[in-house]
Simulated scan of single mutants.
Amino acid sequence: MTVPLISAKDLSVQLDGRPILQHISVEIAAGEIVTIVGPNGSGKSTFLRALIGAVPLSKGRVTRAPGLKIGYVPQKLALDASLPMTVQRFLGLPRRVSTAAALQALGNAGVPDLCNRQMTDLSGGQFQRVLLARALLDRPQLLMLDEATQGLDQPGAAAFYQRIEQVRQELGCAIVMVSHDLHVVMAASDRVLCLNGHICCQGSPQMVADAPEYRALFGTGTKGTMALYRHQHSHSHDHGPDHQDHHHEHERAQ
């Protein structure tokens, strides 16, 4: 039996005496991409923070594999616009990293040429790629992203998700991401978790898209859009016809 990278058993969280998450049990296996969707206020970000130990549990437990390395990409990060800082210097906070390590992480994030750019000069998409690179510096076994495409347009979000799939192929890490991009999330996911204070439904992208609980939260109008982005590429991650079709689906949808 394969030991999961991280698992939650009967996880519950209260903030200011108000229940945010209740009775959540889930396991994340090595190499899989799990996407968490749900309406605003459903506890998605809190769930990620509970998994990494950033918020206390009111009930239940989280178990991590020994020595588990986790990379985390926050929803957003505010930097002082008056503070000059290159991308490499940013990647070296709080501990300095070598130029080679910075270049490798930026390459994994798909932006190998940004090393000497000023952080304040980056576009929104470039800034998110740098945050991704920072999370990849230690080559994590588990990468967590909290609505990392917030503020990006649809092509930018789709490109970011394609890069996440490439990161999974290159590093072999599992990925857990919170997303509001219902129209592109299907392409990148092995499993979808629909959250609204508790797990409403979970399973393959198509299974969740067809679930009454999901339709009740997001309406029936999302299914046709999401079907276009159905998870189509092969799990061998070769570059055969399935892989090409997957990218053509993206291009037609733009």
Rank of each mutant, 00 (worst) to 15 (best):
I164R: 01
L137A: 05
G151R: 00
V130L: 10
T149Y: 02
S123K: 06
L152E: 05
P112E: 03
Q126L: 13
A159D: 00
I164H: 01
P155R: 08
P140S: 14
L114I: 08
A148S: 05
E165W: 10
D121C: 14
G151T: 03
D153W: 05
M119S: 04
A157P: 06
L136N: 09
L143Y: 04
Q169F: 14
M119W: 07
L136S: 05
D153Q: 03
L145G: 00
Q118I: 14
A158T: 15
L152F: 00
G172C: 11
L152D: 05
G125S: 08
Q150V: 03
V167T: 08
R163P: 02
Q154A: 12
L143E: 03
A133M: 08
G125I: 04
A133Y: 05
P112N: 07
P112F: 13
E165M: 10
D121F: 11
A135P: 09
Q162P: 10
D113Q: 12
V167Y: 01
D113R: 06
R168P: 10
P155W: 10
G156Y: 02
P155Y: 12
L142C: 07
Q162T: 14
P112Y: 05
A133S: 12
L145Q: 01
Q128E: 04
R168N: 13
T120H: 14
T120W: 12
Q169P: 10
Q166H: 15
Q118E: 13
R163Y: 07
A158R: 07
D121T: 14
C115M: 13
Q169L: 12
Q162F: 09
M119D: 10
T120V: 13
Q141C: 11
A133T: 09
A133F: 04
P140E: 11
R139C: 15
Q169S: 15
L142W: 07
I164C: 02
R117I: 11
Q169I: 14
L131K: 01
L132H: 02
Q141N: 11
R134N: 02
Q118V: 11
L122M: 12
A159M: 06
V130C: 03
N116K: 11
Q162S: 12
A159Y: 00
Q128M: 01
Q118T: 15
S123T: 08
D121K: 13
D121P: 08
L142P: 09
Y161R: 06
M119A: 08
L136G: 09
R139T: 14
L143F: 11
L142M: 09
G156E: 03
R163V: 10
G156C: 01
D113Y: 14
L131P: 04
T149I: 08
Q154H: 15
R129A: 04
L136K: 09
D138L: 15
E147F: 00
V130N: 00
Q118L: 10
G125L: 09
G151L: 02
F160P: 03
Q154S: 13
D138M: 15
T149Q: 04
E170C: 05
L136T: 06
L132R: 01
R117A: 12
R168K: 11
D146H: 01
Q162G: 15
Q150E: 08
G172M: 08
N116G: 14
E170V: 05
G124W: 07
D146K: 01
Q154G: 13
D113L: 13
R117V: 10
D121A: 14
